[in-house]
Design a protein around this nucleic acid. Structure first.
Lengths: 224, 224
DNA sequence: TGTACATCAGTGAACGCGCGTTCACTGATGTAC
DNA sequence: TGTACATCAGTGAACGCGCGTTCACTGATGTAC
């Protein structure tokens, strides 16, 4: 029987082959992916340990130091990546909108879906214990994502049917509502929740006056 | 002068005097209070250690076992106590209301204030990692608190000015909105938030059609 | 009233474990000559 | 072309620390007689 048949052997059996010369940077990627998996399942960066990451990848713990000087940098790498993914998801969703109303709805829906599909990451991104560098307001965490919401609400408001004339204030209210939807559904999965769409509709109609009928059919929304 | 002048000597200096015979149960209280302080500052029960609680109280770690068989029971004691306090606060606030509108507003305000004044506890009570005994639905966490909200919304709906005719659904929307307000303000303290009252007003007017003017003057609300 | 005893409240030492971090090292492989 | 060497990717052993948990114990104090 062939000995080293599989290249990507999983950690338990295969004694993970070391990278070729010049390809050491691959471990960096693997470490970030492993940390991301662990963070997804814990939902709190403070519970992440270097030892667990090393184990997950199948590598000795000191090997991590070649790429990250401490666990914080590893977390930062994961967090930056996930903020980027969320932003990408919002931008992508908004492109699907055919008018300001459906664009705003799509944006909100994408936000909630990201959160509900990656609850651990969502909790880390928008939970209280992030502590990125507060001196770099450019990446003040989540501010860019909030900016997308502001964009969408502004465009909707410009179309003239919004509730008030302060798009920024409305965007705050919408963000708060969406965050409530996502985080309570994550933390109370056993509660008898109405369909996600209904919660989003209620938030949008309450906060910006965007009623369900105005954007039915914009995305793949189906009522039951 | 009386010999045992100070009963509650602080941990650092005073070598905490042991309780008299028959008063061993006092340590139980102290342990719960200490755990509560630590939980308030961490915001996650999974970070609580017996060693830290023992240190906080000024007692040897094994002493805890006389009162709690593991850290989970200690957490459970704190959580039950804080849920009770929150419920008390809501009930007390609602008693101050003079009509269904002001009662509902007072309830929501009390909910938010509890959360913002005890952010660590709020995160533990309504965060994702609680895991109380799911076989006892009676204390399914937070359900009783949610029930207060349902009560208040129902009373308001019965008065006839509500947005829809499904008080339970409205209460869900209100809960979600309040949770969003509290948890995002906790986790993004540096964000330029509007006054708490404005956020609550927006939630209430959006979700149940209760507009600020309908309850101005009911509590100590002041506009600026 | 005095004294022996039972009980209570809590301690100190010890253990194994997982973690972070350091250090010198190993072995494969690309490269200069 | 062959060979010596430098470098790269990663390891294994070791350390101190904090933690959970056990165990036998200690010393104060209430109580029975």
């Amino acid at each position: 029987m062939p000995e080293k048949s599989v290249e990507r052997a999983p950690a338990p059996g295969g004694k993970r082959p070391r990278n070729r010369r010049g390809e050491g940077a691959r471990l960096r990627i693997e470490l970030i992916e492993a940390a991301a998996r662990l963070l997804e399942s814990s939902g709190d960066a403070r519970l992440l340990t270097l030892a667990a990451v090393a184990r997950e990848v199948g590598v000795a713990a000191p090997s991590i130091y070649r790429h990250f000087s401490d666990v914080g940098q590893l977390v930062e790498a994961v967090v930056a990546d996930r903020f980027q993914r969320l932003d990408d998801a919002l931008v992508h969703a908004m492109k699907r909108g055919t008018d300001p109303a459906s664009t705003l709805a799509a944006c909100c829906e994408a936000y909630c879906k990201f959160g509900l599909e990656h609850p651990g990451h969502y909790q880390i991104l928008f939970g209280a214990h992030l502590e990125l560098d507060p001196d770099r307001p450019s990446d003040r965490p989540g501010e860019r994502v909030f900016g997308r919401l502001v964009e969408a609400v502004e465009a909707y408001a410009a179309a003239g049917v919004a509730r008030s004339h302060d798009p920024h204030a409305m965007a705050v209210n919408v963000w708060v509502a969406l965050h409530g939807i996502v985080s309570l559904r994550i933390s109370r999965p056993q509660h008898a929740w109405p369909p996600l769409e209904d919660l989003i509709d209620a938030a949008l109609s309450g906060q910006v006056g965007l009623h369900p009928t105005s954007h039915v059919g914009a995305g793949k929304r189906r009522r039951r």
